[in-house]
């Protein structure tokens, strides 16, 4: 009897939106953590959207090509998506770290190259990804059998493996940056590459590694869409639909800190989930208004953060966006 009562609470609109916020926030979280790593090493990568789209396509392709148990296929697919993202990031790293091209221009070009009109669309159309229904997708895991606990159950204990992985990753990235020697080196490279260089830290290597890691996480973030949220692949950029850009804004919003990325990701995840949840509950609001909410909110949040930002520098790596050349400064 009480179980039935609790279950009915869990069907409430608020709880559904909360649970969906975690779901929709997960790709944002992956991508934001990746961008965080790259930016902490001093490289701004605006190609997140493109890397996510390509990761989504490659991850979905892997589920079609590989045969085996659900779990092994999905792990391989996520790995493939990560590799795809890293491959795209390698272009950016080569252009900006080795050739010292403008990071902004290179990142924008990467989004166009890998994005919905570029490589990912070519790849997907060439392999007819859109014609195949999803054969493997992430399902929700009922952790500790706590699914039916009021409110917390659906929000925390009935999510997919990717969601749990993203929590572990947030913790790992936070600890890595704050508590390990490598993390300290990364921050040094992002704050003062010349000093780091003088200390014997290999600036180029650190930047390459973190841009590639960032690309891999963006690829995994894209795979969240094609394997978890809306299993399948569609041409164009509707699959990811600007999430890469929101992730970049999230890093600013989170003051370049991993734990705040989590908060921001779920905030924007909630905004993305709201239209669907409201529609399912028969609330009639202009759908376009609701759908544009995450984008409009990104602008609002950025403005709030930047005005605070203008007063004191809050966490932005000092060398962010600047190519490092040993002879110049």
């Amino acid at each position: 009897m009480s179980a039935g009562m609790l279950a009915s609470i869990n069907d409430d609109l608020e709880v559904v939106v909360l649970a969906q916020a975690v779901l929709y926030g997960t790709p944002l979280l992956f991508a934001a953590l990746g961008e965080l790593l790259a930016e902490r090493s001093g490289v701004l990568n605006l190609g997140v959207e493109g890397m996510m789209l390509f990761g989504a396509a490659v991850g979905y392709w892997a589920t079609l090509r590989v045969h085996g148990s659900d779990a092994s296929v999905l792990v391989l697919a996520v790995g493939a998506a990560g590799l795809a993202g890293a491959a795209m990031a390698a272009i950016h790293a080569f252009l900006t770290v080795t050739l010292r091209a403008s990071q902004i221009v290179s990142g924008l070009a990467l989004t166009i190259f890998a994005g919905g009109l570029g490589l990912s669309a070519y790849f997907g159309n060439e392999l007819h990804l859109a014609d195949h229904p999803a054969s493997h997708e992430f399902g929700s895991i009922d952790v500790f059998g706590l699914k039916d606990v009021a409110v917390l159950g659906p929000v925390l204990f009935n999510q997919s493996a990717l969601v749990y992985a993203s929590w572990v990753l947030t913790l790992a990235v936070g600890l890595y940056l704050a508590r390990t020697r490598w993390g300290l080196n990364v921050r040094a490279v992002g704050e003062a590459p010349a000093s780091a260089d003088a200390m014997g830290i290999n600036v180029t290597l650190y930047r390459y590694v973190h841009v590639l890691l960032g690309g891999a996480l963006a690829g995994v973030g894209g795979a969240c869409y094609s394997l978890l949220i809306t299993p399948g692949w569609v041409a164009g950029d509707t699959l990811v639909n600007g999430a890469g850009w929101i992730a970049i804004a999230l890093v600013i919003f989170a003051f370049w800190r991993a734990e705040l990325c989590l908060v921001g990701a779920y905030l924007f995840g909630g905004l993305s989930a709201l239209p669907f949840a409201l529609q399912a509950h028969g609330v009639t609001v202009t759908p376009e208004l609701l759908q544009s909410l995450p984008y409009a909110m990104t602008v609002v949040v950025l403005v709030l953060v930047s005005t605070a930002f203008a007063k004191r520098r809050l966490g932005a790596p000092a060398a962010l966006g600047r190519p490092y050349a040993r002879e110049e400064r």
Binding site: I248, T298, V299, L302, T307
Partner: peptide
């Protein structure tokens, strides 16, 4: 205006407004 007075990153704001404009035209 956001760039000039709030130091907001114009890349992200102008891009986000693309999506808003797309929904506006759908509406």
């Amino acid at each position: 205006v956001l760039r000039a007075f709030a130091h907001t990153n114009e890349i992200i704001t102008s891009l986000m407004l693309n999506y808003v404009a797309a929904y506006l035209i759908t509406y």
